[in-house]
Design a binder for these strands. Structure first.
Lengths: 227, 227
DNA sequence: CCTATAAAGACATCAGATGTTTCCTGAGTT
DNA sequence: AACTCAGGAAACATCTGATGTCTTTATAGG
């Protein structure tokens, strides 16, 4: 299986070298087929792979374009990958989050604007109001962390941590929390993070984020060992 | 464009739900085509996407199988993504490494075996011997860090950091180092990391790793601003 | 100048044929 | 009984051509 993979590599190389800059339009399938000396089927498979990787944007009836190549696009696949990981490797993911999330939260403490802090406070209130609705709680939880991390202004970091906190993973942690009647603990941990950020205290923010990740890790371990 | 994407989602869901466990064999293209009600072309494109994501392993003349779904496979795509990032987002990647690599190195200090330490010492010696050969230096540099991170025993972490330290990125940092006649600085930084690990001193290891990443970040900034 | 329709261009999908590779079976041999 | 190897079946790889559908653009009419 060389032809199609060659085509993938060739397209990727052209993009990497800047011959096909972000936003530019690719030749048509027929032209690519001729240029690369393979059939249109092969071209289509190659393009499909790069489209799935958010490198190309195929617009039916129009043409195929190179995306912006923004981190948020290219790192989108990480989330999908994490969702497919087997249970026995999820603790590894949590260990990475334990390393990354406190540091990111600490950085956010120095960069968060007043408006972002207000937004965060609002999410906290929403959480309190929804404390008996697991579904909404999980949503607010995700929003809370996304808001914090996004405040670092680092899109790559945001996308990575977003991918590492996949929906399924988050849902499992919450299942543990709820079954263990400990949702209130998490709420107070969120409050601690919020207060630290509000004080723009990076060390305190880092510490409270670590405690929070650690709690999640514990409950995930519980859920996984129960299965 | 729904049919093929539906097929991708359906296959991914089946794998996620465990209906197609790691190592299992998929129905043939013809059977999938019938089951999903789309043409073989569509099936092939879907399978190709999942093959590129290292979710499926297609063996010509044999059949298509689900891979082990090991982190090292599923996270392989991260490296490719990083290689495609535009220059103006590379500093974001370095900031993530700044957060992650010190923590990982600190963890390695507690977990590294004597054999691994010896291996690391050997790589250091190789680096000293190759101090005028940029190509080999870069190779040993990569080997050094891979060995350290791998000692954490966390395959997910290893794959992530490996992807974040793409070849191109590393080569650029080294180009800056060499043009700035500062390769020797990096060598001594590696020695500091090695000594900290040898002493199994997590805080010292973390600190020396941070200094090292910081140096890389500075040189990358130099290289990028020159362009 | 605006609008609606027609035409052209491009991707989406399908169907069928042919080439290659791998695996397995069975005949023959030792 | 075990081993070897040729043959065939199964499965993926690739190509070709036709048809459908959508988008964009050009054009004719108001």
């Amino acid at each position: 299986m060389a032809l199609t993979d060659d085509a993938i590599t060739r397209l990727r190389t052209m993009i990497q070298l800047g011959e096909l800059p972000p936003g530019s339009r690719l030749p048509t399938e027929a032209q690519l087929s001729t240029q690369m000396g393979i059939s249109r089927s092969g071209v289509r498979e190659a393009v499909k792979v790069l489209e799935a990787a958010r490198v190309l944007d195929v617009r039916r009836g129009d043409g195929t374009y190179v995306t912006s190549l923004a981190p948020r696009l290219l790192l989108e696949g990480l989330g999908v990958a994490v969702e497919l990981l087997r249970d026995d490797t999820l603790m590894e993911v949590m260990e990475v989050r334990r390393m990354l999330e406190p540091a990111a939260t600490g950085a956010a403490a120095l960069r968060m604007s007043d408006a972002e802090l207000d937004e965060l406070g609002q999410i906290l209130e929403d959480m309190r109001a929804a404390k008996d609705d697991a579904e909404r709680l999980i949503g607010y939880d995700a929003a809370f962390h996304r808001t914090v991390i996004a405040a670092t202004g680092n899109e790559t970091l945001t996308s990575l941590l977003d991918g590492l906190s996949g929906q399924t993973l988050r849902a499992r942690v919450w299942r543990g929390l709820i079954e263990g009647n400990s949702a209130h603990v998490t709420l107070s941990e969120h409050e601690a993070i919020y207060l630290a950020l509000r004080s723009r205290d990076p060390l305190l923010a880092q510490a409270s984020a670590l405690l929070h990740v650690n709690t999640s890790e514990s409950w995930l371990r519980t859920v996984l060992s129960a299965a």
